[in-house]
């Protein structure tokens, strides 16, 4: 077994430990904990899918991320106000997903980096004006472009990691970096939530997300930081300094991503972005922090190592 496999085994160990704790809580607690149980069950499914994708081939992982982008974009378009005249434009936006993930598969960094922010962002407004309906044009262009940014461009950075070659002989390379990013981002979500539930008192940004607290935020940052420092040598080429820096960057940007999607939901008056993942809500609820951590982590890694 390589250190990469040990890392995956460690994640399963954590999941089993968490499931045992949730089981004990559900037996002892008199309160309704069915949502917590559902959440845990959904984690089994999600971690199962990721493990299979990781172990089978990078291509499967890229396809899985493409599907995540598709589901997230579909959730976004279903949630926001759209114009009937823009039906065709939405279809173009969806079509950018296979193309963007093809650049990932092809490791064509130059095109990967500009396809959405240059070509799609210029093309979609044009596609939209063809219907000659200018009422709500600006709002439509703004919302569609931002949807592509969050759901497709950002998330595809996570997938691009997997195509990166190992920096040192025998290193875990791209798959290790992707595992590190996704694990820390998701773990940080859970850690911030758990710290907040247990010790949360002082609200951090009540106008956007009333359940978020300073205790949850700082507890999450601390836990993720420690975990990043300890797991970085297993799957990444990071030195202690790099690991410490990214151990702060991931939880902080993850938090920002989370509250950004919260602001969007609050504006639209919805509680969850969807109902795809039992106990969690929609897929955007699950990947909200990843929409920020993925590009930031990618460029951090690229700047120092590639």
């Amino acid at each position: 077994m390589t250190s990469f496999h040990w890392a995956i085994a460690g994640i399963w160990g954590l999941l089993i430990l968490a499931s045992v704790i949730v089981f004990v809580i559900s037996k002892r607690s008199e309160k309704d904990v069915s949502e917590l149980v559902q959440r845990t069950q959904s984690w089994w499914v999600m971690i199962g899918i990721f493990t299979v994708a990781f172990l089978v081939s990078p291509v499967i992982s890229i396809i899985v991320f493409g599907l995540i982008s598709f589901l997230a974009l579909k959730e976004y378009f279903s949630m926001i106000p759209t114009r009937r005249a823009d039906r065709r434009v939405l279809l173009w936006a969806y079509l950018s997903i296979p193309i963007q993930y093809f650049w990932v598969y092809d490791s064509y960094y130059g095109m990967f980096a500009v396809f959405i922010p240059v070509y799609m962002f210029l093309f979609l407004p044009f596609a939209s004006l063809i219907s000659q309906q200018t009422d709500g044009f600006l709002k439509s262009v703004g919302t569609l472009n931002w949807g592509l940014m969050l759901c497709v461009f950002s998330i595809s950075h996570a997938a691009f990691l997997i195509t990166l070659p190992p920096v040192t002989d025998g290193g875990a390379g791209g798959p290790g970096l992707l595992l590190f990013l996704v694990f820390l981002t998701q773990f940080n979500d859970v850690a911030q939530y758990t710290w907040g539930k247990m010790f949360g008192r002082h609200k951090i940004i009540p106008g956007v997300s009333p359940n978020k607290t300073w205790e949850g935020f700082l507890g999450g940052v601390g836990t993720t930081f420690v975990l990043a420092v300890f797991t970085a040598p297993l799957v990444t080429p990071f030195s202690l300094g790099h690991a410490a820096a990214i151990g702060l960057i991931i939880p902080v940007t993850g938090f920002v991503g989370d509250v950004t999607v919260s602001a969007l939901k609050r504006d639209l008056g919805v509680k969850d972005t969807g109902s795809l993942i039992p106990g969690h809500g929609g897929i955007l609820d699950r990947i909200d922090s990843l929409t920020f951590t993925a590009p930031i982590f990618f460029h951090f890694t690229r700047f120092f190592f590639y």
Partner: peptide, 17 residues
């Protein structure tokens, strides 16, 4: 949502939840 995905008079199916 079904009317958004495939309204009367259109053959173009656009995905929506």
């Amino acid at each position: 949502g079904l009317g958004k995905a495939l309204p009367k008079g259109s053959w173009l199916l656009v995905p929506f939840f």
